[in-house]
């Protein structure tokens, strides 16, 4: 290897020269996929038909707004990300991107996505997207995440807004259907994340994030998983009786809620000795099931909408 190569390597490491993929990683593409799916469902199940290109544009900019808040979250949480095993490979803790770059990219994309969504759909949709970004970055990341074990409960609202924004893109207003789609994700978030926290405890503890498992212990967290799952059920079922629901949705929802309740019950009946003995198998299974739970609920909304176009579905 020549000196020039050696010097080049040193320079490369010091400047943290990032590739295009690193900037994409700042936008949390995996979280974006959930945003894309739920926003698209919110838009497609609305009773107003939207031109496919406008639909595409709206979903793209809702996703970009989600990505922008992801970049701003990584800017603020760089110190936590450095400590946690799950996040220390992210572009900022890995040294490939500077914190200031993430801040700049996040702010620029936030402005772009809000303005473009307002132009493509309507002002209310743009305003809701702006509020979502503000809520996720300021209320959740900057304020609640490090100060209260209820961080997940309130912060979950940020992830619950996309289907509502999708609905508003099509209809221009907020209705009971949009609110129930919001509540479905909002109420689902706590048991979903607490199931994760039960087997990821050491990471949160190390980073000093006051997750319920860290501040109140796993017994209390198990109680909370069961309580919040019970609280989730009526909202999930209620959506089945609105204009976006129907027999198919209701049947799917009853089965999924029965499964989630059963899982939460099993988590509640276990203790640390039994959980550690099988490597948190139940907690991991319930966490995976909770992902399926949300995905299938929104798929059922889509199925009802598709059936309606053939004169079927709905009540």
């Amino acid at each position: 290897m020549s000196d020039i190569h050696a010097n080049g390597d040193v320079i490369g490491a010091q400047t943290g020269e990032a590739g295009f993929g690193d900037y994409v990683a700042l936008l949390k593409p995996r979280v974006m996929s959930l945003v894309v799916f739920t926003a698209m469902v919110g838009l497609l199940v609305a009773p107003v038909s939207v031109h496919p290109f406008v639909t595409f544009t709206c979903v793209l900019f809702i996703a970009l707004g989600g990505g922008a808040s992801g970049a701003l979250n990584m800017w603020w949480d760089a110190d936590i990300d450095q400590v946690m095993r799950r996040t220390k490979g992210r572009p900022i803790p890995a040294g490939r991107i500077q914190r200031g770059e993430a801040l700049g990219l996040g702010l620029a994309l936030s402005g772009l996505s809000v303005i473009m969504l307002a132009l493509a759909a309507n002002i209310l949709a743009g305003a809701l997207l702006a509020f979502t970004i503000f809520f996720y970055v300021v209320i959740y990341s900057i304020w609640l995440k490090r100060s209260t074990p209820q961080n997940i409960v309130i912060g979950g609202a940020a992830g619950a807004f996309p289907p509502m924004i999708g609905w508003v893109c099509a209809t221009g207003s907020i209705s009971v259907e949009a609110v129930l789609m919001f509540l479905l994700i909002f109420m689902w978030t706590p048991p979903h994340f607490w199931a994760l926290a039960l087997f990821m405890n050491s990471d949160y503890e190390k980073a000093g994030v006051p997750m319920l498992t860290v501040t109140h212990g796993k017994r209390v967290t198990r109680n909370h998983v069961l309580a919040y799952t019970i609280a989730l059920v009526p909202f999930a079922l209620a959506a089945g009786f609105t204009s976006i629901g129907g027999p198919v949705y209701l049947a799917v929802s009853v089965l999924l809620n029965a499964g989630f309740l059963w899982g939460a019950w099993r988590i509640w009946t276990r203790n640390e000795i039994t959980a550690e003995a099988d490597g948190y198998a139940t907690e991991k299974a319930v966490f995976k099931f909770s992902l399926l739970y949300l995905f299938l609920h929104f798929t059922a909304f889509l199925v009802e909408a598709a059936l309606k176009s053939y004169g079927l579905g709905g009540w």
């Binding site: 490369g12 020269e17 990032a18 590739g19 295009f20 406008v54």
Partner: peptide, 28 residues
């Protein structure tokens, strides 16, 4: 150097993103 390749990839990605954005605004 590898750093130049990475820089080229980044510039190419940004260029394509901008072209896609122009096409999107035109389509909209």
């Amino acid at each position: 150097h590898e750093i130049h390749q990475r820089r080229f990839g980044r510039n190419l990605g940004l260029g394509l993103t901008l072209v896609a954005f122009v096409a999107l605004v035109f389509g909209l």
